[in-house]
Nucleic acid binder design. Structure first.
Length: 253
DNA sequence: TAGGCCATCTGGTCCT
DNA sequence: AGGACCAGATGGCCTA
């Protein structure tokens, strides 16, 4: 009857979720108020004739069969939403946003906006990095010879991953300090996120073409950048990288 | 208490 | 026909 064996709702505060015998998820109160007896009848019927027998049109279905069908559809929809929430959690995990028991989870809309902005910021940073690398290597001959040696790299420069981290971090720091504000200044258009105030530092900036790199980047107080000191912030880690470093960053409300 | 966020149910639509 | 997807409705929980 119920194929929903997915995870429990991702909502951090879902105290009234219970798992029924069939693996379905119901709110306690909804479960109580939502025709418990009818569900039992549907389950009993499902047990009696699990195969369903000959197909009937919907108008031919009995009340119990309609109810059973309804429960089945509900279960599928529930599973679909749980899968969606799982994907959303996966997205949250790779976001440069503090995670932990003391930190409220990003809302869905905040997660999506943050993800978009983060991607835009990374793209912008990558472009800037390419320019800087091009400047470092200077003459076109050098670049051409290197490019020939590494056919996969773009003429703009070798992949960032091939460079030592430190210069990269320095470049990023200078980039970050000099301008951008992809991550800051939540515009009035930003979705209000009262439950995750820190997220606003990443929300609401305009497209990189228009708004990126125009205002100082307001890193959270957790991301202090000191000259010569290794920096744990997300921006200073080689990309792509594991997200564990991001996970360890904690920002309390 | 209002507002935000969420899970769930439900009916409709589209696709296979 | 069945399933996936979507959007609206509803009600619960939490916070300012």
């Amino acid at each position: 009857m119920d194929s929903d064996t997915g995870s429990i709702g991702s909502r951090s505060s879902s105290p009234d979720l219970v798992v029924d015998d069939a693996g379905g998820f119901f709110s306690n109160k909804m479960f109580q108020t939502y025709c418990k007896d009818r569900e039992a009848a549907a389950q009993a019927m499902a047990e009696r004739c699990p195969g369903g027998g000959k197909a009937k049109t919907r108008s031919e279905l009995s009340k119990d069969e309609v109810q059973e069908l309804r429960l089945k559809v509900n279960s599928r929809e529930r599973k679909r939403m749980h899968d969606l929430n799982q994907a959303m959690d996966g997205l949250r995990e790779v976001m440069p946003y503090a995670q932990g028991p003391s930190v409220r989870k990003l809302s869905k809309i905040s997660t999506l906006l943050l993800a978009r902005n983060y991607i835009l910021m990374l793209s912008s940073s990558l472009e800037e990095m390419k320019k800087l690398v091009g400047d470092v290597y200077g003459g076109s001959a050098g670049i051409q010879s290197r490019t020939a040696a590494h056919p996969a790299v773009t003429p703009a420069g070798p992949p960032a991953a091939h460079l030592p981290l430190h210069p990269l971090a320095q470049s990023l720091h200078s980039l970050v300090a000099s301008a951008p504000s992809a991550l800051s200044t939540a515009s009035t258009a930003a979705v209000p996120s009262p439950h995750s105030p820190s997220s606003t530092s990443f929300l609401g900036f305009h497209s990189p073409v228009q708004g990126l790199l125009k205002e100082p980047l307001h890193l959270t107080s957790s991301y202090r950048h000191f000259p010569g000191m290794p920096c744990p912030c997300a921006l200073c880690q080689p990309l792509p990288t594991t997200t564990s470093t991001l996970h360890n960053l904690s920002m309390t409300k």
